[in-house]
Design a binder for these strands. Structure first.
Lengths: 196, 196
DNA sequence: GTCTATATGCTGATAGAC
DNA sequence: GTCTATCAGCATATAGAC
Protein backbone atom coordinates (compact mmCIF):
# COMPACT_ATOMS: atom_id res chain seq x y z
CA UNK A 1 0.00 0.00 0.00
CA UNK A 2 2.76 2.47 -0.99
CA UNK A 3 0.89 3.69 -4.02
CA UNK A 4 1.29 7.31 -4.94
CA UNK A 5 -2.20 8.28 -3.88
CA UNK A 6 -2.88 11.25 -1.62
CA UNK A 7 -2.59 10.34 2.05
CA UNK A 8 -6.32 10.67 2.66
CA UNK A 9 -7.15 8.23 -0.14
CA UNK A 10 -4.47 5.80 0.97
CA UNK A 11 -6.00 5.77 4.45
CA UNK A 12 -9.51 5.06 3.16
CA UNK A 13 -8.24 2.32 0.85
CA UNK A 14 -6.28 0.74 3.70
CA UNK A 15 -9.32 0.76 5.97
CA UNK A 16 -11.52 -0.81 3.28
CA UNK A 17 -8.90 -3.46 2.62
CA UNK A 18 -8.47 -4.36 6.27
CA UNK A 19 -12.21 -4.47 6.89
CA UNK A 20 -12.64 -6.97 4.06
CA UNK A 21 -10.40 -9.40 5.91
CA UNK A 22 -10.88 -8.59 9.58
CA UNK A 23 -14.09 -6.66 9.94
CA UNK A 24 -14.36 -3.48 11.95
CA UNK A 25 -13.64 -4.45 15.54
CA UNK A 26 -10.46 -6.40 14.87
CA UNK A 27 -8.95 -3.58 12.81
CA UNK A 28 -6.92 -1.19 14.95
CA UNK A 29 -5.99 2.39 14.21
CA UNK A 30 -2.33 1.42 14.28
CA UNK A 31 -2.92 -1.22 11.60
CA UNK A 32 -4.67 1.31 9.38
CA UNK A 33 -1.86 3.85 9.45
CA UNK A 34 0.82 1.17 9.08
CA UNK A 35 -0.97 -0.32 6.09
CA UNK A 36 -1.32 3.14 4.52
CA UNK A 37 2.26 4.16 5.41
CA UNK A 38 0.90 7.26 7.11
CA UNK A 39 1.42 8.76 10.55
CA UNK A 40 -1.30 8.56 13.21
CA UNK A 41 -1.67 12.29 13.24
CA UNK A 42 -2.73 12.34 9.60
CA UNK A 43 -5.62 10.00 10.26
CA UNK A 44 -6.99 12.29 12.95
CA UNK A 45 -6.25 15.30 10.77
CA UNK A 46 -8.47 14.03 7.95
CA UNK A 47 -10.94 12.15 10.15
CA UNK A 48 -11.42 14.06 13.40
CA UNK A 49 -13.94 11.47 14.64
CA UNK A 50 -11.37 8.74 14.22
CA UNK A 51 -11.91 5.11 13.43
CA UNK A 52 -15.69 5.26 13.13
CA UNK A 53 -15.51 8.08 10.63
CA UNK A 54 -12.91 6.48 8.40
CA UNK A 55 -14.93 3.25 8.48
CA UNK A 56 -17.99 5.15 7.30
CA UNK A 57 -16.00 6.63 4.43
CA UNK A 58 -14.57 3.26 3.45
CA UNK A 59 -18.02 1.66 3.44
CA UNK A 60 -19.48 4.42 1.30
CA UNK A 61 -16.74 4.40 -1.29
CA UNK A 62 -16.67 0.63 -1.73
CA UNK A 63 -20.47 0.46 -1.71
CA UNK A 64 -20.55 2.84 -4.65
CA UNK A 65 -17.85 0.89 -6.47
CA UNK A 66 -19.59 -2.44 -6.21
CA UNK A 67 -23.00 -1.42 -7.49
CA UNK A 68 -21.25 -0.25 -10.63
CA UNK A 69 -20.34 -3.87 -11.36
CA UNK A 70 -23.93 -4.90 -12.02
CA UNK A 71 -24.32 -3.40 -15.50
CA UNK A 72 -20.69 -4.08 -16.35
CA UNK A 73 -21.03 -7.80 -15.68
CA UNK A 74 -24.63 -8.31 -16.86
CA UNK A 75 -24.82 -6.16 -20.00
CA UNK A 76 -22.74 -8.49 -22.20
CA UNK A 77 -25.23 -11.34 -21.74
CA UNK A 78 -28.46 -11.45 -23.75
CA UNK A 79 -29.87 -14.00 -21.34
CA UNK A 80 -30.09 -12.64 -17.80
CA UNK A 81 -29.55 -16.09 -16.32
CA UNK A 82 -26.24 -16.41 -18.17
CA UNK A 83 -25.25 -13.03 -16.78
CA UNK A 84 -26.01 -14.08 -13.21
CA UNK A 85 -24.04 -17.27 -13.61
CA UNK A 86 -21.06 -15.30 -14.92
CA UNK A 87 -21.40 -12.84 -12.04
CA UNK A 88 -21.21 -15.56 -9.39
CA UNK A 89 -18.41 -17.41 -11.15
CA UNK A 90 -16.37 -14.20 -11.34
CA UNK A 91 -16.97 -13.62 -7.64
CA UNK A 92 -15.80 -17.14 -6.83
CA UNK A 93 -12.61 -16.71 -8.80
CA UNK A 94 -11.80 -13.32 -7.28
CA UNK A 95 -12.48 -14.54 -3.79
CA UNK A 96 -10.25 -17.57 -4.00
CA UNK A 97 -7.46 -15.53 -5.58
CA UNK A 98 -7.77 -12.86 -2.87
CA UNK A 99 -7.24 -15.45 -0.13
CA UNK A 100 -10.87 -15.71 0.92
CA UNK A 101 -11.32 -12.09 1.82
CA UNK A 102 -14.85 -10.94 1.28
CA UNK A 103 -15.30 -9.00 -1.94
CA UNK A 104 -16.86 -6.07 -0.20
CA UNK A 105 -16.45 -4.86 3.37
CA UNK A 106 -20.15 -4.09 3.72
CA UNK A 107 -21.10 -7.75 3.98
CA UNK A 108 -18.32 -8.61 6.41
CA UNK A 109 -18.98 -5.66 8.64
CA UNK A 110 -22.77 -5.33 8.60
CA UNK A 111 -23.57 -8.25 10.87
CA UNK A 112 -20.75 -7.43 13.23
CA UNK A 113 -21.76 -3.85 13.95
CA UNK A 114 -25.55 -4.06 13.59
CA UNK A 115 -26.10 -3.72 17.32
CA UNK A 116 -22.92 -2.10 18.58
CA UNK A 117 -22.36 0.77 16.13
CA UNK A 118 -25.71 2.39 15.30
CA UNK A 119 -24.24 5.06 13.03
CA UNK A 120 -22.33 2.54 10.94
CA UNK A 121 -25.38 0.28 10.75
CA UNK A 122 -27.41 3.13 9.29
CA UNK A 123 -24.73 3.82 6.73
CA UNK A 124 -24.60 0.13 5.79
CA UNK A 125 -28.41 0.10 5.54
CA UNK A 126 -28.31 3.09 3.20
CA UNK A 127 -25.76 1.38 0.97
CA UNK A 128 -27.71 -1.87 0.84
CA UNK A 129 -30.96 -0.03 0.12
CA UNK A 130 -29.38 1.82 -2.77
CA UNK A 131 -27.97 -1.46 -4.10
CA UNK A 132 -31.46 -2.93 -4.08
CA UNK A 133 -33.01 0.13 -5.72
CA UNK A 134 -30.39 0.42 -8.46
CA UNK A 135 -30.31 -3.27 -9.19
CA UNK A 136 -34.11 -3.40 -9.33
CA UNK A 137 -34.05 -0.54 -11.83
CA UNK A 138 -31.52 -2.44 -13.91
CA UNK A 139 -33.69 -5.54 -14.06
CA UNK A 140 -36.70 -3.43 -14.99
CA UNK A 141 -34.61 -2.05 -17.82
CA UNK A 142 -33.96 -5.63 -18.89
CA UNK A 143 -37.69 -6.24 -19.18
CA UNK A 144 -38.86 -7.48 -15.80
CA UNK A 145 -41.99 -6.31 -14.08
CA UNK A 146 -41.01 -3.89 -11.25
CA UNK A 147 -42.34 -6.04 -8.42
CA UNK A 148 -40.71 -9.15 -9.83
CA UNK A 149 -37.48 -7.24 -10.44
CA UNK A 150 -37.28 -6.24 -6.79
CA UNK A 151 -37.91 -9.77 -5.60
CA UNK A 152 -35.26 -11.16 -7.93
CA UNK A 153 -32.81 -8.53 -6.68
CA UNK A 154 -33.42 -9.26 -3.01
CA UNK A 155 -33.16 -12.98 -3.60
CA UNK A 156 -29.95 -12.66 -5.59
CA UNK A 157 -28.33 -10.29 -3.10
CA UNK A 158 -29.20 -12.52 -0.15
CA UNK A 159 -27.90 -15.57 -2.00
CA UNK A 160 -24.69 -13.75 -2.95
CA UNK A 161 -23.95 -12.52 0.57
CA UNK A 162 -24.80 -15.89 2.08
CA UNK A 163 -22.65 -17.70 -0.46
CA UNK A 164 -19.77 -15.34 0.38
CA UNK A 165 -20.19 -16.19 4.05
CA UNK A 166 -20.15 -19.93 3.39
CA UNK A 167 -17.22 -19.69 0.97
CA UNK A 168 -15.23 -17.71 3.49
CA UNK A 169 -16.01 -20.08 6.33
CA UNK A 170 -15.47 -23.30 4.39
CA UNK A 171 -12.71 -21.94 2.14
CA UNK A 172 -14.51 -23.39 -0.84
CA UNK A 173 -16.12 -21.89 -3.92
CA UNK A 174 -18.86 -24.55 -4.00
CA UNK A 175 -21.50 -22.29 -2.46
CA UNK A 176 -20.90 -19.56 -5.05
CA UNK A 177 -21.06 -21.91 -8.01
CA UNK A 178 -24.14 -23.74 -6.71
CA UNK A 179 -26.12 -20.60 -5.89
CA UNK A 180 -25.11 -18.93 -9.15
CA UNK A 181 -26.19 -21.95 -11.14
CA UNK A 182 -29.50 -22.26 -9.31
CA UNK A 183 -30.34 -18.58 -9.65
CA UNK A 184 -29.39 -18.69 -13.32
CA UNK A 185 -31.88 -21.48 -13.95
CA UNK A 186 -34.53 -19.53 -12.11
CA UNK A 187 -33.96 -16.23 -13.87
CA UNK A 188 -33.73 -17.69 -17.38
CA UNK A 189 -37.38 -18.75 -17.14
CA UNK A 190 -38.87 -15.51 -15.89
CA UNK A 191 -41.57 -13.83 -17.97
CA UNK A 192 -40.45 -10.59 -19.62
CA UNK A 193 -42.80 -7.72 -20.26
CA UNK A 194 -43.57 -6.96 -23.86
CA UNK A 195 -41.10 -5.26 -26.14
CA UNK A 196 -37.75 -6.56 -24.93
CA UNK B 1 -29.85 -14.75 32.87
CA UNK B 2 -30.36 -15.70 36.55
CA UNK B 3 -31.71 -19.13 35.68
CA UNK B 4 -30.91 -21.96 38.02
CA UNK B 5 -28.48 -23.62 35.64
CA UNK B 6 -25.01 -24.70 36.72
CA UNK B 7 -22.48 -21.88 36.46
CA UNK B 8 -20.69 -23.47 33.53
CA UNK B 9 -23.87 -23.75 31.49
CA UNK B 10 -24.92 -20.21 32.36
CA UNK B 11 -21.58 -18.95 31.08
CA UNK B 12 -21.88 -20.79 27.77
CA UNK B 13 -25.47 -19.60 27.30
CA UNK B 14 -24.45 -16.02 28.06
CA UNK B 15 -21.61 -16.17 25.53
CA UNK B 16 -23.89 -17.59 22.84
CA UNK B 17 -26.47 -14.93 23.55
CA UNK B 18 -24.01 -12.06 23.41
CA UNK B 19 -22.38 -13.36 20.23
CA UNK B 20 -25.77 -13.41 18.48
CA UNK B 21 -26.02 -9.66 19.00
CA UNK B 22 -22.46 -8.40 19.05
CA UNK B 23 -20.28 -10.99 17.44
CA UNK B 24 -17.05 -12.21 18.98
CA UNK B 25 -14.76 -9.20 19.06
CA UNK B 26 -17.19 -6.78 20.63
CA UNK B 27 -18.08 -9.20 23.43
CA UNK B 28 -15.83 -8.71 26.44
CA UNK B 29 -15.09 -11.19 29.20
CA UNK B 30 -16.59 -8.80 31.70
CA UNK B 31 -19.85 -8.72 29.76
CA UNK B 32 -19.99 -12.51 29.69
CA UNK B 33 -19.63 -12.93 33.45
CA UNK B 34 -22.00 -10.05 34.18
CA UNK B 35 -24.62 -11.52 31.87
CA UNK B 36 -24.21 -14.93 33.49
CA UNK B 37 -24.11 -13.51 37.04
CA UNK B 38 -20.86 -15.33 37.65
CA UNK B 39 -17.45 -14.19 38.91
CA UNK B 40 -14.51 -13.82 36.52
CA UNK B 41 -12.62 -16.55 38.32
CA UNK B 42 -15.29 -19.11 37.45
CA UNK B 43 -14.91 -18.46 33.74
CA UNK B 44 -11.19 -19.15 33.87
CA UNK B 45 -11.81 -22.12 36.16
CA UNK B 46 -14.06 -23.85 33.61
CA UNK B 47 -12.35 -22.45 30.51
CA UNK B 48 -8.60 -22.15 31.16
CA UNK B 49 -8.01 -20.82 27.64
CA UNK B 50 -10.43 -17.99 28.27
CA UNK B 51 -12.61 -16.19 25.79
CA UNK B 52 -11.61 -18.20 22.74
CA UNK B 53 -12.43 -21.47 24.45
CA UNK B 54 -15.83 -20.41 25.72
CA UNK B 55 -16.65 -19.07 22.25
CA UNK B 56 -15.79 -22.45 20.75
CA UNK B 57 -18.10 -24.14 23.23
CA UNK B 58 -20.93 -21.71 22.56
CA UNK B 59 -20.62 -22.19 18.80
CA UNK B 60 -20.65 -25.97 19.11
CA UNK B 61 -23.66 -26.13 21.37
CA UNK B 62 -25.81 -23.73 19.34
CA UNK B 63 -24.70 -25.35 16.09
CA UNK B 64 -26.01 -28.68 17.33
CA UNK B 65 -29.25 -27.09 18.50
CA UNK B 66 -30.04 -25.44 15.20
CA UNK B 67 -29.59 -28.42 12.91
CA UNK B 68 -32.20 -30.18 15.02
CA UNK B 69 -34.75 -27.64 13.78
CA UNK B 70 -34.66 -28.94 10.21
CA UNK B 71 -36.77 -32.07 10.71
CA UNK B 72 -38.91 -30.41 13.37
CA UNK B 73 -39.95 -27.61 11.02
CA UNK B 74 -40.08 -29.56 7.74
CA UNK B 75 -41.63 -32.89 8.77
CA UNK B 76 -45.15 -31.51 9.21
CA UNK B 77 -45.35 -30.44 5.57
CA UNK B 78 -46.09 -32.95 2.82
CA UNK B 79 -44.82 -30.50 0.24
CA UNK B 80 -41.17 -29.58 0.80
CA UNK B 81 -41.73 -26.13 -0.66
CA UNK B 82 -44.42 -25.41 1.92
CA UNK B 83 -41.99 -26.52 4.61
CA UNK B 84 -39.27 -24.17 3.39
CA UNK B 85 -41.68 -21.25 3.29
CA UNK B 86 -42.78 -21.99 6.85
CA UNK B 87 -39.13 -22.25 7.93
CA UNK B 88 -38.24 -18.81 6.57
CA UNK B 89 -41.43 -17.21 7.89
CA UNK B 90 -40.73 -18.60 11.35
CA UNK B 91 -37.19 -17.24 11.19
CA UNK B 92 -38.51 -13.81 10.21
CA UNK B 93 -40.93 -13.73 13.11
CA UNK B 94 -38.35 -14.87 15.65
CA UNK B 95 -35.80 -12.39 14.40
CA UNK B 96 -38.06 -9.39 14.59
CA UNK B 97 -39.29 -10.41 18.04
CA UNK B 98 -35.71 -10.90 19.27
CA UNK B 99 -34.82 -7.33 18.28
CA UNK B 100 -32.92 -8.25 15.10
CA UNK B 101 -30.37 -10.47 16.75
CA UNK B 102 -29.19 -13.19 14.43
CA UNK B 103 -30.86 -16.51 15.14
CA UNK B 104 -27.58 -18.31 15.48
CA UNK B 105 -24.16 -16.99 16.48
CA UNK B 106 -22.39 -19.05 13.83
CA UNK B 107 -23.58 -16.80 11.01
CA UNK B 108 -22.82 -13.58 12.85
CA UNK B 109 -19.38 -14.68 13.93
CA UNK B 110 -18.10 -16.68 10.96
CA UNK B 111 -17.30 -13.76 8.67
CA UNK B 112 -15.83 -11.72 11.48
CA UNK B 113 -13.26 -14.27 12.63
CA UNK B 114 -12.49 -16.05 9.35
CA UNK B 115 -9.05 -14.47 9.09
CA UNK B 116 -8.25 -13.42 12.64
CA UNK B 117 -9.13 -16.52 14.68
CA UNK B 118 -8.04 -19.64 12.80
CA UNK B 119 -9.14 -22.08 15.51
CA UNK B 120 -12.64 -20.62 15.69
CA UNK B 121 -12.92 -20.56 11.91
CA UNK B 122 -12.17 -24.28 11.78
CA UNK B 123 -14.82 -24.95 14.39
CA UNK B 124 -17.33 -22.85 12.46
CA UNK B 125 -16.39 -24.72 9.27
CA UNK B 126 -16.99 -28.04 10.99
CA UNK B 127 -20.42 -26.93 12.18
CA UNK B 128 -21.43 -25.64 8.75
CA UNK B 129 -20.19 -28.81 7.07
CA UNK B 130 -22.22 -30.96 9.40
CA UNK B 131 -25.28 -28.79 8.76
CA UNK B 132 -24.87 -29.36 5.04
CA UNK B 133 -24.34 -33.10 5.43
CA UNK B 134 -27.28 -33.61 7.76
CA UNK B 135 -29.62 -31.43 5.80
CA UNK B 136 -28.64 -33.16 2.57
CA UNK B 137 -29.42 -36.51 4.19
CA UNK B 138 -32.81 -35.17 5.25
CA UNK B 139 -33.69 -34.10 1.72
CA UNK B 140 -32.56 -37.46 0.38
CA UNK B 141 -34.93 -39.03 2.89
CA UNK B 142 -37.66 -36.85 1.45
CA UNK B 143 -37.06 -38.29 -1.99
CA UNK B 144 -34.45 -36.10 -3.65
CA UNK B 145 -31.51 -37.40 -5.61
CA UNK B 146 -28.35 -37.05 -3.46
CA UNK B 147 -26.58 -34.61 -5.75
CA UNK B 148 -29.67 -32.47 -6.11
CA UNK B 149 -30.30 -32.65 -2.36
CA UNK B 150 -26.86 -31.24 -1.65
CA UNK B 151 -27.30 -28.41 -4.11
CA UNK B 152 -30.69 -27.52 -2.68
CA UNK B 153 -29.19 -27.52 0.81
CA UNK B 154 -26.28 -25.26 -0.08
CA UNK B 155 -28.57 -22.89 -1.95
CA UNK B 156 -31.07 -22.73 0.91
CA UNK B 157 -28.40 -22.25 3.57
CA UNK B 158 -26.71 -19.48 1.61
CA UNK B 159 -30.05 -17.78 1.02
CA UNK B 160 -30.98 -18.09 4.70
CA UNK B 161 -27.71 -16.66 5.99
CA UNK B 162 -27.75 -13.88 3.43
CA UNK B 163 -31.36 -13.04 4.21
CA UNK B 164 -30.46 -12.88 7.91
CA UNK B 165 -27.66 -10.45 7.10
CA UNK B 166 -29.95 -8.21 5.05
CA UNK B 167 -32.75 -8.36 7.62
CA UNK B 168 -30.34 -7.42 10.39
CA UNK B 169 -28.84 -4.56 8.42
CA UNK B 170 -32.11 -3.15 7.09
CA UNK B 171 -34.19 -4.08 10.14
CA UNK B 172 -36.80 -5.54 7.84
CA UNK B 173 -38.18 -9.04 7.32
CA UNK B 174 -38.62 -8.49 3.58
CA UNK B 175 -35.50 -10.43 2.64
CA UNK B 176 -36.57 -13.49 4.63
CA UNK B 177 -40.07 -13.56 3.19
CA UNK B 178 -38.89 -12.99 -0.38
CA UNK B 179 -36.15 -15.62 -0.29
CA UNK B 180 -38.41 -18.12 1.47
CA UNK B 181 -41.14 -17.64 -1.10
CA UNK B 182 -38.73 -17.93 -4.03
CA UNK B 183 -37.06 -21.06 -2.70
CA UNK B 184 -40.46 -22.58 -1.96
CA UNK B 185 -41.52 -22.13 -5.58
CA UNK B 186 -38.28 -23.69 -6.72
CA UNK B 187 -38.39 -26.70 -4.41
CA UNK B 188 -42.05 -27.51 -5.01
CA UNK B 189 -41.24 -28.33 -8.63
CA UNK B 190 -38.25 -30.58 -8.10
CA UNK B 191 -38.36 -34.15 -9.39
CA UNK B 192 -38.60 -36.79 -6.68
CA UNK B 193 -37.10 -40.23 -7.06
CA UNK B 194 -39.52 -43.11 -7.25
CA UNK B 195 -41.31 -44.48 -4.21
CA UNK B 196 -41.92 -41.39 -2.06
C1' DG C 1 -15.66 -23.75 43.26
C1' DT C 2 -16.25 -18.74 44.34
C1' DC C 3 -14.79 -14.31 44.50
C1' DT C 4 -11.75 -9.86 44.55
C1' DA C 5 -7.82 -7.38 43.55
C1' DT C 6 -4.52 -6.70 40.41
C1' DA C 7 -0.86 -7.19 36.54
C1' DT C 8 0.34 -6.19 31.87
C1' DG C 9 -0.43 -4.71 27.42
C1' DC C 10 -2.97 -2.58 23.84
C1' DT C 11 -6.76 0.51 22.53
C1' DG C 12 -8.46 4.96 20.47
C1' DA C 13 -7.36 9.45 20.85
C1' DT C 14 -4.61 13.92 21.78
C1' DA C 15 -0.89 17.61 22.26
C1' DG C 16 2.40 20.05 20.44
C1' DA C 17 7.03 20.47 17.97
C1' DC C 18 8.32 20.88 13.27
C1' DG D 1 0.12 18.54 6.80
C1' DT D 2 3.55 15.43 9.13
C1' DC D 3 5.23 13.14 12.85
C1' DT D 4 6.34 11.50 17.85
C1' DA D 5 5.43 11.01 22.57
C1' DT D 6 2.07 10.17 25.56
C1' DC D 7 -2.54 9.94 27.93
C1' DA D 8 -6.41 7.54 30.20
C1' DG D 9 -9.13 3.56 29.93
C1' DC D 10 -10.31 -0.98 29.01
C1' DA D 11 -8.92 -5.54 27.42
C1' DT D 12 -7.64 -10.43 28.79
C1' DA D 13 -5.79 -12.97 32.07
C1' DT D 14 -3.91 -14.28 36.78
C1' DA D 15 -2.95 -14.84 41.95
C1' DG D 16 -4.38 -16.05 46.02
C1' DA D 17 -7.73 -15.61 50.07
C1' DC D 18 -11.83 -17.87 51.32
Amino acid sequence: MTESLPTRDRLVAAMADLMRFQGYGATSVKQIVDHASAPVGSLYHFFPQGKRQIAADALRSTGAAYIALVPVLLDPHDDLGDGIRAFFDAAAEDMERAGWANMCPVGTVAAEIADTEPELREIAAGIVSSWIDQSTAYFVGRGLDPDLARRVTVMALAALEGAFLLARTLRSTESLHVTGETLAGLVSHLPLTAGT
